Simulated assay, not measured.
Amino acid sequence: MQSPITQLEQIVLTTRSKTFLREISKWAFFFSIIGFIGIAFLLIGAILIGTVYAPMLNMIAQQQGAPSISMGIMITYLVMGLLYFMPVFYLFKFSRKMKLALANKNDEILADALESLKSHYKFIGVLTIIMISLYVLLIGFSLVAGSLV
């Protein structure tokens, strides 16, 4: 005997659900635009640090007896911008497709919108796991290095 869940072939969106999804798509669009602006600032910052501010940063580093740091900061900003692009792009795709799906009452576009949202959260989740792992490793190495001194 099949359970009621497996017999259910479609989900009906109520007017209230559509209103919530419409509002979610507006906020997702807002956050994606803010994300793209943030990425632009990261890339502009990377270019400025690599060119305009490089001599000043290198001079300060040499006075402190440290190696040049401008290239490291520039690469860090570039990597952060590149890593941030994909989740922001997925969020943008979700917002546009959700708005289109609700306007056209199209189930396929709705599924595509939800797939973009899934990809957004999957990317953020994997990135979070990687960052937590790096923090744990950094703390472990710090404790080992601190005990050797």
Rank of each mutant, 00 (worst) to 15 (best):
T128I: 08
K26E: 00
A61T: 03
S70H: 15
F20T: 00
G81D: 03
F89H: 10
I11D: 01
K26W: 02
G35I: 08
F30N: 09
T14N: 05
L127R: 08
F30L: 15
S3G: 09
L57G: 01
I139D: 08
L48F: 14
I60M: 14
S119K: 11
F85S: 01
S32P: 04
M56S: 11
A40W: 06
L117H: 09
I139G: 05
S95M: 02
I73G: 03
L100K: 01
S133E: 03
T76P: 05
G45D: 04
Q63C: 11
R22K: 15
L82V: 15
L13I: 01
F41M: 10
K105D: 07
I109G: 00
S142E: 10
I69D: 09
I69W: 05
I124H: 09
M98H: 02
S119M: 11
F20S: 06
V144K: 07
S3V: 14
I73P: 01
S142P: 04
F20W: 05
E115Y: 14
F141S: 03
A145P: 01
K122V: 09
L21K: 05
G81Q: 04
G81K: 04
L137M: 12
F31D: 05
G125S: 04
Q62Y: 12
S70P: 02
I60F: 13
